[in-house]
Design a protein around this nucleic acid. Structure first.
Lengths: 220, 220
DNA sequence: TCTCTTTATATTGTTGACAATGAACTCTGC
DNA sequence: GCAGAGTTCATTGTCAACAATATAAAGAGA
């Protein structure tokens, strides 16, 4: 506990709720009663209501009027929809990034890839993936695309939902070296300012990611 | 007045607020005070707060904590971002639609195009566009894509925002016959189940739409 | 006259009590 | 023993009063 706790605002509560959900403190399907949360955070139900609406807006909570809020669960169909959206958004990200990159940006991407390669070498089982480095790559590219609207959609809605999805359907292993190679091809296209190719490669990259996830789910 | 008005729920209020904004009853930049709205709808501030949060979630309202809500205004930069998002989403829609269409769907699209052509012929000035028929085409295609996530994003967030955008920066004339021809090419690709071509054509279609809007804005 | 401070007002944020709705349980009749 | 109706309980929705904050106006000093 840092010091004295000020009265938490709705936004604070929303942030902590999000964290709790993403970290697994609250499991998918779990009920989120207003009274319980109000007591837990030391405020009345008003701010908690606001916070629940906020978190619901980013798709981490299933909300039904007159019934209440639960941590969202994902069916396999919804998971596919999520990846289809991701394919669209990240494809556009790659296209835009390819149009706008400068020298410094390219250096940054290449450094990221090098780090990523190191991580994979030191974990030859490749089990470590969809790790922070993988996420980093997609986030950095989204930043380079310089489209705050799409960036926010990715960072504040889609990626959190993907995290929750993985908590829902345990998908342990990433695709390791495969993903890295695809990242490298994408960076090549981006560096060459080849917008359409970058977009195409990224969309295929996301499709491959979905295929990996999907076969993992159906094969067990 | 239909009959006796039940006490309006937060969702009802949100819907009427959305309508008011999209119809132009409330202009961009206009302040939306909780007290005023509460009185207007005959409820207390509680449900109004909920409604404002809801509408803010669909991007029609600018919300600042401790300050309040205003009808959203769009800068030209934000407008471009909107179109970039639209390009991504509708490109994916066309791709998915091309993958899934059946005979009946193709018939439906062709009928829509024929109607659209009629509308244009009867209004040779072409001023009438981005009319319901144009919107219909994109909505029907989105429906065919069979991805509720993307469909909702389009129907409940992006399209309303585009409507508000046009109310912000008056863009009178659509592209008339041009758009129709592009729609026809897209339907051809969709009918042939050519996913990548359909996606490509749609993305270019949206780009052309943006260019038309942009030149209209900067030229005056 | 202008700027900075201070005060007053209006608006949002929060709270606890009350109303309405949904879910669980019990009891009856078969 | 089981299905359905009625009742009870828990939870969400609503409200009006209060606290905290931001905006606007008024006044003092240079």
């Amino acid at each position: 506990m840092t010091a004295k706790e000020q009265r938490l605002s709705a936004a604070d509560i929303a942030a902590r709720l999000r964290d709790d959900i993403l970290v697994g403190e609250r499991s998918p399907g779990e009920r989120l009663g207003e009274a319980e949360l109000a007591e837990r955070f030391g405020v009345s139900r008003g701010p908690v209501r606001d916070a629940l609406r906020l978190v619901a807006g980013s798709g981490l909570i299933d909300f039904t009027p007159n019934i209440g809020a639960r941590v969202r669960e994902f069916s396999l169909t919804e998971a596919r929809a999520l990846y289809q959206l991701r394919e669209a958004l990240e494809g556009q990200v790659a296209t835009l990034a390819a149009k706008r990159v400068g020298e410094a940006d390219i250096k940054r991407l290449e450094r990221l890839l090098a780090e990523h390669a190191l991580v994979i070498e030191s974990h030859p089982e490749n089990a470590y993936l969809q790790s922070s480095k993988d996420r980093d790559f997609h986030l950095v590219l989204a930043e380079l695309a310089d489209s705050p609207l799409i960036f926010n959609l990715l960072a504040q809605e889609l990626y959190p939902q993907l995290t929750l999805l993985r908590r829902c359907h345990r998908s342990s292993k990433g695709r390791g070296g495969r993903a890295l190679i695809e990242h490298q091809r994408i960076v090549e296209a981006v560096s060459a300012n080849d917008c359409e190719l970058a977009g195409l490669l990224m969309r295929r990259h996301i499709q491959a990611s979905w295929n990996s996830f999907y076969t993992q789910q159906t094969s067990k």
